[in-house]
Design a protein around this nucleic acid. Structure first.
Lengths: 155, 155
DNA sequence: CTAGGGGTTGAAGCGCGCTCGAACGCAAGT
DNA sequence: ACTTGCGTTCGAGCGCGCTTCAACCCCTAG
């Protein structure tokens, strides 16, 4: 599996400083890499773009996360909108949001205007989880670097 | 599951600034919470101390991560050394190290002195993974906060 | 006309990291 | 004597997030 691709793209583009302006990041994938006027993409193309496998994209569709149109042959056609959503999904998965919560969120989005409050709650909870996770990792990082420094120390 | 306990302890004790001196942290769990002269702990006590379930501790033993002694009744007795190792294991798991890699590492530790080089490599790889993961999360955090800010925006 | 390379489906399988269930042992309290 | 509570073992089961399989379809190029 490699959601790695997507992140690689993002990380490469990011000016690497932690508190960098983020507007550019949004442009990067939401607006520039995905051109609204592009013809719809095949599942293989879409998968490559977001760094997932075609199989995973089909799986996400079964889970109701995306609903690409079909062409005459019954093949999926991912519109710019679909792709945008896929990018979002990939990011959220990557940040540790569960499929369950993500499907809930997407269902709310599809449900429309009256659901903003719950959506915002979901995202706030997600932000808190990310922050918590970052703190965990920062701590673990220190332990790991300590081990590296003390090299042959027991344990 | 709650490895949470352990981390909660650590996070509570940490002066919360990201680049804080870490020596204190080591003291906290490696030296103060685990007193060398304490009598050995039961599995329930040990589990509570590191924030894992007794079941998980048995599982870790099956995986050769720890080998507590047994008392006359065949019950496990976790020594200060065992507990120290459990704390380390919990931290490494929490930081995303796989069981496979962790068992490998522990096997090397148990093997002794001639394995320092590989151990150090494992830890370096782990450090890199943590750094990568933190960058991923930082990015996802920005996206999430963007969503929260723009609130009712689609997707 | 046929071979190849894309696509489709539904159902089953998998790897990870636990977690649970069943059957049992031991020691203390009432 | 017996219940309670903590421990033991082995093996099976589970939830998550994909991934694989088998059978089939469609289009194009040679």
């Amino acid at each position: 599996m490699s959601t790695d691709l997507l992140v690689a793209q993002l990380l490469d583009a990011a000016p690497d400083s932690t508190g960098a302006p983020i507007g550019a990041l949004h442009r990067l994938l939401d607006d520039s890499a995905i051109d609204e006027s592009d013809p719809a993409k095949s599942i293989a193309e879409a998968a490559a773009l977001v760094g997932l496998s075609p199989t995973t994209l089909r799986y996400y569709e079964r889970q109701q996360l995306v609903r690409p149109a079909r062409n005459a042959a019954g093949h999926r056609e991912y519109s710019a909108l679909d792709l945008r959503r896929l990018v979002f999904i990939a990011r959220m998965r990557l940040s540790g949001m569960s499929m369950q919560e993500l499907t809930r969120y997407i269902a709310l989005v599809d449900d429309g205007h009256t659901t903003q409050q719950e959506r915002q709650q979901i995202m706030s909870a997600q932000r808190d989880r990310i922050l918590h996770r970052i703190r965990e990792l920062t701590l673990a990082l220190e332990v790991t670097e300590y081990k590296i420094r003390t090299y042959g120390a027991p344990e």
